[in-house]
């Protein structure tokens, strides 16, 4: 695993997303982008559908990302990336095409396109940064919004959220990983592994990216909220190679429910769960149980 000191040095020499970009204070995705770009060693070409990253990259001259970005139609990114990848396969294999998309663009409108690119095993790293709603347009419910979370289009719902990571594992994707902006070393390593070890295949990484604005969280607590998502068992950290899951070193112990921290304490930090009804809380607990069951079922021997 990369050492903290090393990561700081790497990010000091190469700044993926520059100062003064248009991210909100405490933005989780902005951290994810910095660590991810650092791992890709200046070879990344980003394809970005409509999402927060369309905004934070800035206007014309104030462009704030130190990597080429192709802004695509909402549902089109994995296919646009396929076009890039097929051309650069022959013209310049050093280029790593990355789809950088939010949860709405991935779990909802872009799902068929994602499925197509995954099935074709395109040479793409697909990063879904999950801020659990359409945050770019002001927090509307997406397929990845968890039970009980209030959004501008829902006052909390029972339905479990759609896990695209699990879907990608069952799609037969070569490398699937979950990550979290509060665990930058783990995130960096997973990006690096996807980039170096599984080149030539479709790779999918889902990053938990807290959104202080949308979730009604104090921007000081972005990292704290992210960390607790792992420690409460809500966000298992793992890698799956050829469908076989290995739990990540950081967070492995939360496989044991006894070791997990209080869900209520974590929810209390987030305005979106402030008035969570008991039945929604129950649904959220069931969702967590379900995701661990899946993990256990698919764990490597």
């Amino acid at each position: 695993m990369v050492k903290l000191k090393e990561l700081i040095e790497i990010e000091a020499t190469y700044v993926g997303n520059m100062k003064g970009n248009l991210a909100c204070a405490g933005c989780g995705l902005n951290l994810a982008l910095r660590h991810a770009l650092a791992a890709l060693d200046q070879h990344a070409l980003l394809v970005v559908p409509a999402c927060c990253t369309s905004v934070i990259q800035g206007f014309g001259e104030g462009y704030g990302i130190n990597a080429p970005v192709f802004n695509s139609a909402f549902a089109a990114s994995p296919a646009v990336a396929s076009g890039f990848a097929r051309v650069y396969k022959k013209k310049d294999p050093s280029v790593q095409v990355v789809v950088w998309a939010g949860d709405g663009g991935t779990a909802d409108i872009g799902l068929a396109t994602l499925s197509g690119a995954a099935e074709r095993d395109e040479d793409i790293i697909y990063v879904m940064y999950n801020n659990e709603a359409y945050q770019n347009t002001g927090d509307q419910k997406s397929g990845a919004t968890p039970p009980g979370a209030v959004t501008t289009t829902s006052s909390g719902e029972k339905r479990p959220s759609k896990s695209v990571s699990r879907l990608m594992i069952t799609h037969g994707v070569k490398y699937v990983a979950t990550a979290n902006t509060a665990y930058p070393l783990d995130l960096y390593d997973k990006m690096k592994r996807a980039y170096e070890e599984f080149r030539g295949h479709f790779r999918f990484i889902e990053i938990y990216a807290p959104c202080p604005a949308g979730w009604n969280v104090d921007p000081r607590y972005t990292a704290k909220v992210g960390k607790l998502a792992v420690e409460t068992g809500y966000w298992p950290l793992y890698e799956a190679v050829d469908g076989k899951i290995t739990l990540s070193r950081q967070g492995r112990r939360f496989l044991d429910p006894e070791k997990r921290k209080s869900l209520e304490d974590w929810l209390a930090l987030q305005g979106r769960f402030k008035k969570i009804k008991p039945e929604f809380l129950e649904a959220l607990r069931q969702d967590i149980d379900h995701s661990w069951e899946f993990v256990k079922k698919h764990m490597a021997e």
Binding site: F70, S77, S82, G83, F84, V87, A112, T113
Partner: peptide, 26 residues
């Protein structure tokens, strides 16, 4: 040529878009 067996027409055009933006002919 790279023949991309896409899952929809939307993706057919999207793939061509990416290819041309990479400097390829589509």
């Amino acid at each position: 040529s790279e023949f991309v067996k896409v899952e929809s027409e939307h993706s057919a055009m999207a793939t061509c878009i990416g290819a041309v933006a990479a400097g390829g002919r589509a």
